[in-house]
Computed example of a mutant assay.
Amino acid sequence: MKHFRNILYVSEPLVDQASALARAVSLAARHEAKLTIVSTVSKIEPEYLDEEVAFQRQALQDLAVPHGQNPNIQTDVLVGSAFREIIRAVLRHGYDLVIKAAENPGFLQRLFGSTDMHLLRKCPCPVWLMKVPETPHYSQILAAVDVNPVRSDETETTLNSEILALASALAVSDGAALHLVHAWEGFAEGIVRRWSDKSPDEVATYVEMERQRHQSGLSSLEDSLQKQVGEEIYSQLRPRYHLQKGAPQREISAMAEKLQADLVVMGTLARTGVSGLFIGNTAEMILEQLPCSVLAIKPPGFISPVKLDE
Rank of each mutant, 00 (worst) to 15 (best):
189 E>S: 15
189 E>Q: 14
190 G>N: 11
191 I>K: 14
191 I>W: 12
192 V>C: 11
193 R>F: 08
194 R>V: 07
194 R>Y: 12
195 W>E: 15
195 W>N: 15
195 W>A: 15
197 D>P: 14
198 K>V: 14
198 K>G: 14
198 K>W: 14
198 K>Q: 14
198 K>P: 13
198 K>A: 15
198 K>E: 15
199 S>G: 08
199 S>Q: 09
201 D>H: 05
202 E>N: 09
202 E>H: 07
204 A>E: 15
204 A>F: 09
204 A>Q: 15
204 A>W: 09
204 A>S: 15
205 T>L: 14
205 T>C: 11
206 Y>A: 07
207 V>I: 14
207 V>M: 09
207 V>G: 09
207 V>Q: 06
208 E>V: 07
208 E>L: 05
208 E>F: 02
209 M>Y: 06
209 M>L: 10
209 M>W: 02
210 E>M: 15
211 R>H: 08
211 R>D: 04
211 R>P: 11
211 R>K: 15
212 Q>N: 10
213 R>S: 08
214 H>M: 06
214 H>S: 06
214 H>W: 08
214 H>I: 03
214 H>F: 10
215 Q>N: 11
215 Q>S: 12
216 S>T: 13
220 S>E: 09
220 S>W: 00
220 S>G: 05
222 E>D: 11
223 D>G: 08
223 D>T: 08
224 S>N: 10
224 S>Y: 01
224 S>I: 02
225 L>Q: 05
225 L>F: 03
226 Q>W: 04
227 K>I: 01
228 Q>I: 00
229 V>L: 02
229 V>N: 06
229 V>K: 10
231 E>G: 01
232 E>H: 03
234 Y>D: 01
234 Y>P: 04
234 Y>Q: 03
235 S>P: 12
235 S>T: 08
236 Q>K: 09
236 Q>C: 06
237 L>K: 04
238 R>V: 03
239 P>R: 04
239 P>Y: 00
240 R>K: 10
240 R>G: 02
241 Y>A: 05
242 H>E: 10
242 H>S: 03
242 H>W: 03
242 H>P: 09
243 L>V: 13
243 L>F: 02
244 Q>D: 11
244 Q>M: 11
